[in-house]
Amino acid sequence: MGQTIVVRDLRKRYGDVQAVNGVTFEVEEGEFFGILGPNGAGKTTTLEIIEGLRQADSGTVEIFGQSPWPRNPKLLPRIGVQLQASAFFERLTAREQIRTFASLYGTAQAEADEMLEVVGLADKAATPAEKLSGGQAQRLSIACALVHGPDLVFLDEPTAALDPQARRNLWDLLRDINKQGRTVVLTTHYMDEAESLCDRVAIMDRGEILQSGAPATLVRGLDSMTHISIESGLLSLTEAKALAGPGDDVTDDGVSLQFSTPSPAPLLAALAERRALGGLRVRGATLEDVFLHLTGREYRA
């Protein structure tokens, strides 16, 4: 499979802020690629340079083998962009919005109406964009990005500020888009979103990509601990420490007794033997542990 996007050593500075500091990655055709990082990591700036909205200070970008800067009209029909802030014409209804965008690409009005159905907004067609809920506006925004059938789709934090149910619905839509064979590049500050949607993620912080790969590979690559917790009071701290292995970490905050161990099986067996499984929770490593491991900081979106 060919490389849809090739980014090499991208840099961008705003005054004192080095927003993007030597970013390099590739995205393959048909891939669902995520850029994951806290706010201010440089995700939007990176995306905007790739889309051709901003000029990098240095470094190169190729989309389908062409440079997006300066504005490249040959490339534009092949990409679809959902901007971080929804961009809608004032006082136009959902149907008028998407039809206007369709005509900018020479796409038929009927296809625009169909796209409204696909994102589940057919019953909101006559509603002004200003009156849509957050989730509906995001879906309209995505529909406007997809209306001309692009091969490559950029989505900048599409689920930010949505309630959990609306997020799940949107995830299904995004998976479908990718299943149709489109390459999708998404930025997010939600770890679970990246883990759930992306074939591959790049973890970004302070303008740099710390690591990239499939979410499962990243987590497995970590010499990671499994976190086991039970109710406080079932075991004393001394008993707990006796049960735990030499490399394990044991804490008791009065609510739960927590073990962090690289080998959970013998510990779980020992706890079961003592019938001390009340309130048991076992949590494997997640991308948050990967972030913690890479930066030494707790992940805070």
Partner: peptide, 18 residues
């Protein structure tokens, strides 16, 4: 001003419309 503020201009810039 409003088309720039509401990001419509940059969205138009991403479309092939001249």
């Amino acid at each position: 001003v409003t088309w720039r503020q509401k990001k419509i201009l940059r969205r138009l810039r991403l479309s092939p419309a001249p």
